[in-house]
């Protein structure tokens, strides 16, 4: 039984019999609401995909984006390895893997920017058609989440460098990990519905 300190709240833990950490539960709840948010956007995209002709879809570069998807999945693996490292008390390992996570996230974003520019070159923009609007909005909101994740990874990295996390106390890393895996899973869903089906 680990005990965490937050202001005013020590000793007030009925959750201990459920072994729930309040930060992790809060993160799960936040992610649940994020699922519904992306659900709304995905629903919009699918609705228009089903009801309107989308000639622009032929312009999508599935190979490039497939590689990008691989990059993002690899970055999730880095988070797992980083968490594993700190659980064994290896701070250096955590720092290395967080750095790799941020780097892979940045590569993904770079790929996305490249894709956007090339599509815009073919005349597909936010204002060109309903497909353009929903494509950029959906992938753009996801990209925004990746960007926030990269920043978060770097903040976590700096905290790790300052020695905030130990083998016993690393809920902050776990919370970041949950978020990053979520962003990854959302992308796999988006990749499937936008590029594969």
């Amino acid at each position: 039984m680990t005990s965490h300190t937050i202001p005013h709240a020590d000793d007030f833990r009925a959750g201990r019999e459920l072994s729930l950490d309040h930060r992790k539960l809060g993160m799960w709840l936040f992610l649940a609401s994020e699922v519904m948010f992306f659900g709304g956007l995905v629903g919009t995209f699918l609705h228009y995909k089903a009801t309107l002709p989308t000639p622009e879809a032929a312009l999508l570069d599935t190979v490039l984006v497939g590689l990008n998807t691989f990059v993002l999945i690899t970055s999730s693996l880095m988070v797992v390895l980083g968490l594993d490292a700190i659980q064994r008390g290896r701070r250096r390992g955590l720092i290395t893997f967080l750095g790799l996570t941020a780097l892979l996230g940045a590569i993904f974003l770079g790929g996305q920017v490249f894709e956007f520019i090339s599509l815009a070159g073919h005349g597909v923009t936010l204002q060109s058609s309903v497909f353009g609007s929903s494509f950029y909005t959906l992938t753009g909101f996801h990209g925004l989440h990746v960007l926030i994740g990269v920043i978060w990874a770097l903040v976590t990295l700096m905290k790790a460098a300052r020695g905030t996390y130990t083998a016993q106390e690393h809920a902050g890393v776990e919370a970041f990990g949950l978020y990053w895996h979520f962003v990854d899973v959302v992308w796999i869903v988006l990749f499937t519905i936008i590029y594969l089906i």
């Binding site: 709840l29 519904m36 948010f37 709304g40 956007l41």
Partner: peptide
């Protein structure tokens, strides 16, 4: 937590239609 995010998504689409000229 289940229902509000969907409205947020919808309002974002309205705001974008009005602000950046999307066509939702």
């Amino acid at each position: 937590l289940t229902a509000t995010p969907v409205l947020t998504a919808g309002l974002a689409l309205i705001a974008m239609d009005r602000l950046v000229g999307t066509l939702f």
